[in-house]
Nucleic acid binder design. Structure first.
Ligand SMILES: [Mn+2]
Ligand SMILES: [Mn+2]
Ligand SMILES: [Zn+2]
Ligand SMILES: [Zn+2]
Lengths: 142, 142
DNA sequence: CCCTTAAATGCAACAATGTTGCATTTGCGG
DNA sequence: CCGCAAATGCAACATTGTTGCATTTAAGGG
């Protein structure tokens, strides 16, 4: 009987990152890892009412600093956070964002290869960002 | 003697878009068309001190509604606006955004072709978004 | 030209998002 | 169990963007 491939506990991830394991951080990391898509601060705040607003900002920034989460502004200019390990599932394909309903759709196409950068430039992230109207919203519009 | 390829006046662009030609709009459109890069509201406000803050927001939104400008959140979550005709110069290549200094750099690589979308989906815009650290900021960091 | 009128502007108030300072609490190594 | 740096909670503030409403102005028809 082969050993199961367990995902690490959130506590283990926090310890591996070298930051203190606290109840608020466990709750936030659990929420991020369980989320189907990148979450905004407001969404997390609504989900985790017991956590202070500012603490939540600081926890998210700490996660980003220590490589546990990614942070990117969405089309509306709001930051969205994704757990790095949950995010890996979405690394192999392209996303389409509906400008009407805000929905994110996973396409089957592989992401394009990043081009060569000028000397000295460091690439952190490359995202092929497709925006438009999803089928449902397009139909409703007529 | 061939006829020169004149770019249209900003007033002509406003008229063609079917909106009133006003002094604030002319100033904003001139500024956007002269700008080397997409401009934030704050940058435009500093440049055009005579224009009211709210009016500037409304002018920019009107430009977007009428196809005279594009609007997109930058890596810091701030909206940046570009005149559509000035922007055409930047349609044929990819951009790199420095997460440290906020600078936008034009790369020589052509943009990747958008993938096939699911039935009913409408593509409005496709952008290959590269983020990281520019050479100058990378050097300063060490 | 001058009126008329809808559109655009200016200003005040508000809302959402993100940051800073500081006193208090807590995880964790010793 | 202690001591202390790290993390939290709370208040105040900053920036970015929105809404309501009174006033001004562009543009078209006499
Ligand atoms: Mn996906
Ligand atoms: Mn360019
Ligand atoms: Zn949709
Ligand atoms: Zn830079």
């Amino acid at each position: 009987m082969g050993k199961e491939t367990l995902s690490p506990t959130s506590a283990a991830l926090l310890r591996a990152a070298g930051i203190k394991v606290t109840q608020p951080r466990l709750a936030v990391l659990d929420a991020l890892r369980a989320a189907a898509r990148p979450m905004s601060h407001a969404e997390l705040e609504a989900l985790l009412v017991e956590i202070d607003r500012v603490t939540l900002y600081r926890i998210l920034d700490a996660f980003v600093r220590h490589g546990l989460a990614s942070k990117a502004a969405d089309a509306r200019g709001v930051f969205r956070f994704a757990a790095r390990d949950a995010q890996r599932e979405h690394g192999g394909h392209v996303h389409f964002r509906c400008e009407t309903c805000g929905g994110v759709f996973c396409l089957s196409a592989p992401p394009p290869a990043p081009p060569r950068l000028p000397r000295g430039f460091l690439l952190a992230e490359a995202e092929f960002d497709l925006r438009g109207t999803c089928a449902q919203c397009a139909k409703a519009r007529r």
